[in-house]
Amino acid sequence: MRSTADRIRQAISFELIGILIVTPLFAWAFDHPMGDMGVLVVLGATAATAWNYLFNLGFDHALHRLRGDVRKTLPLRVVHAMLFEATLLMLLLPLFAWWLDVSLVAALLMEVSFAAFYMVYAFVFTWGYDTLFPPRQAGRVSA
Rank of each mutant, 00 (worst) to 15 (best):
A86S: 12
A122N: 14
R65E: 09
H64M: 13
L93V: 07
G58N: 02
F125R: 04
G44F: 06
P24F: 01
P75E: 08
V22S: 12
L43V: 10
I12V: 15
E85I: 07
L91E: 00
G18E: 08
T87N: 15
D69Y: 00
W127L: 03
L91D: 08
G58P: 04
M34T: 14
L93E: 04
M1G: 11
M37S: 07
M37N: 06
A106Q: 11
V78H: 00
A27Y: 09
D130K: 01
V141T: 04
I8Y: 06
R65W: 10
M119Q: 08
F117M: 00
R9M: 12
H61D: 15
P75N: 09
S142L: 12
A143R: 12
R71Q: 12
V41K: 10
Y118T: 10
L89N: 04
S3W: 08
R77I: 12
G128D: 03
V141C: 08
R2N: 05
R9Q: 14
F30L: 06
P134S: 02
A5V: 13
V112H: 02
F123P: 05
A86F: 09
I21C: 09
F84K: 03
V41M: 13
L54Y: 10
M110W: 02
L100M: 08
T87F: 15
H32Q: 14
W99D: 01
M82L: 15
T131E: 12
R71P: 05
G38C: 03
A47W: 01
S13V: 11
V112C: 07
P75C: 08
L57Y: 14
